[in-house]
Computed example of a mutant assay.
Amino acid sequence: MVRAAARWILALALGAIGVVHFVSTRGFRVVVPDWATRITRLDKDAIVIASGAAEVALAAGLLALPRERRRIGIATAAFFVAVLPGNVHQWRTHRSTPGLDTEARRFGRLFLQPVLVLWALWCTAEPAHRGPLRRRLRRRSR
């Protein structure tokens, strides 16, 4: 029950921030490092839109695809790792975005990233009593 609540909170937060990426593209452009545009061959607006779309898709998957929950949790954790360079860039360049308008907040955001990775993995893990091995053993005993 706690994992389910944590998963819902994570999904709602991801979905909300993903939608904000569509509405306020300009506000998130400062987070995108210049090297990301060279590597992806996309402009900063496209990268912001793509990351917002990824967040919305991950949020939807967390809620709508219970059989794929573990995979989506891993994908969500990977997404949080992938956006870390943008957070570092924002901190190093002293650029503000909504809610991250001070040095302390930008620096603190860097430490939130590992927490988000662990949260995504934890809230999508199967409890030990319902793991795949346990299910196979229950099926055989029937």
Rank of each mutant, 00 (worst) to 15 (best):
V2N: 09
V2T: 11
V2W: 06
R3L: 13
A6T: 01
A6Y: 01
W8E: 08
W8Q: 11
I9V: 03
I9A: 03
L10N: 01
A11M: 00
A13H: 10
A13C: 07
L14C: 01
A16E: 11
I17Y: 12
I17P: 10
I17L: 14
V19Y: 04
V19W: 05
V19T: 03
V19F: 05
V20W: 12
V20S: 11
V20I: 14
F22A: 03
V23C: 05
S24D: 11
S24E: 15
R26E: 15
R26W: 14
V31N: 14
V31Y: 12
V31I: 15
P33I: 08
P33T: 09
D34E: 14
A36K: 10
A36H: 10
R38Q: 15
I39Y: 12
T40I: 06
R41F: 15
R41L: 13
L42V: 10
D43Y: 02
D45S: 14
I47N: 04
V48Q: 04
I49N: 13
S51W: 08
A54W: 06
V56K: 03
V56I: 08
L58Q: 04
G61N: 03
G61A: 04
L62A: 03
L63Q: 08
R67V: 10
R67F: 12
E68Y: 14
E68M: 15
R69D: 10
R70H: 12
R70T: 09
R70L: 13
I72P: 00
I72S: 03
I72K: 00
G73D: 07
I74N: 09
A75I: 05
A75E: 06
T76S: 09
T76I: 09
F79H: 05
F80C: 09
F80A: 05
A82F: 03
V83Q: 05
V83D: 05
P85S: 04
P85W: 04
P85C: 07
P85G: 05
N87A: 02
H89N: 15
H89G: 09
Q90D: 12
Q90C: 13
Q90E: 14
R92D: 13
R92V: 15
T93F: 06
H94E: 15
H94Y: 15
H94D: 15
R95Y: 15
S96W: 14
S96E: 15
T97D: 15
P98C: 04
G99L: 00
G99N: 02
G99W: 01
G99T: 01
L100K: 05
D101I: 04
D101H: 04
D101E: 06
D101N: 07
E103M: 13
E103I: 12
A104W: 08
A104H: 07
R106C: 01
R106A: 00
F107C: 11
L110F: 00
F111C: 02
L112W: 15
L112A: 14
P114N: 00
P114L: 01
L116G: 02
L118V: 12
W119I: 00
A120K: 00
W122M: 01
C123I: 02
A125E: 06
E126T: 02
P127G: 11
A128W: 07
H129K: 14
G131F: 11
P132S: 08
R134Y: 11
R135E: 10
R135F: 09
R135N: 08
R136D: 10
L137R: 12
R138E: 11
R139E: 13
R142E: 10
R142K: 12
R142T: 09
